[in-house]
């Protein structure tokens, strides 16, 4: 039963992900990306991480994609730009894909990213949020703080960019 649901969500996720990059209209692309995120959230629930699923919905689908759509609607990317798909980046893109596959292959063959085989005990469902909170603020406090500093820098950077643009407008 669970496997059936997994395949259902996984296939929907992959199909919508392919549609994101293959449809012509940027708004449709954004729409399929939302669908893809929803499927991923469903898979998180199958993996017994309701907190992660809710946050995925809340942050990615609820906030980031709204801003994405907002930008797409306001900027109104010209149709000519969309006719050409790869913007002359075919060779670097193919090289990057090949590189990724090689690295993944090496990792899988050397057994670095394969999950341990055999029966596994289901992670506890009840204390999900507490477990994440505790590990974030104890064992992973350093990366967590680094990420928050990165976000702060991005925030300040965005403000600076907007402010400098305004200055020029006022002078001109």
């Amino acid at each position: 039963m669970e496997q059936f649901f997994f395949y259902m969500f996984a296939i929907a996720a992959v199909v919508s992900a392919v549609l994101v990059i293959s449809v012509r209209n940027p708004v449709h692309s954004a729409f399929y990306l939302i669908v893809c995120f929803l499927q991923v959230a469903a898979i998180y629930i199958l993996l017994r991480s309701p907190f992660l699923a809710a946050v995925q919905l809340f942050i990615y689908v609820g906030a980031i994609m709204v801003l994405f759509l907002f930008a797409v609607l306001v900027l109104d990317i010209g149709r000519e730009q969309f006719r050409e798909r790869f913007h002359g980046q075919t060779v670097p893109a193919l090289a990057a894909i090949a590189g990724l596959f090689v690295v993944m292959g090496i990792l899988v063959v050397s057994g670095k990213i394969t999950a341990p085989l055999g029966p596994f005990d289901e992670p506890a469902l009840m204390k999900n949020t507490e477990v994440i909170g505790k590990s974030l603020y104890t064992s992973y406090i350093f990366p967590f703080e680094i990420v928050s500093i990165l976000l702060l820098i991005a925030l300040i950077g965005a403000v600076v960019l907007v402010m400098s643009g305004q200055g020029k407008e006022n002078k001109g």
Binding site: P50, F51, A53, A54, V55, L57, F58, V61, G62, L125, M126, N128, T129
Partner: peptide, 11 residues
């Protein structure tokens, strides 16, 4: 749900 309020906000 043990993440009930988050689910409601998200939905």
């Amino acid at each position: 749900m043990n993440v009930g309020i988050l689910y409601i906000l998200a939905m």
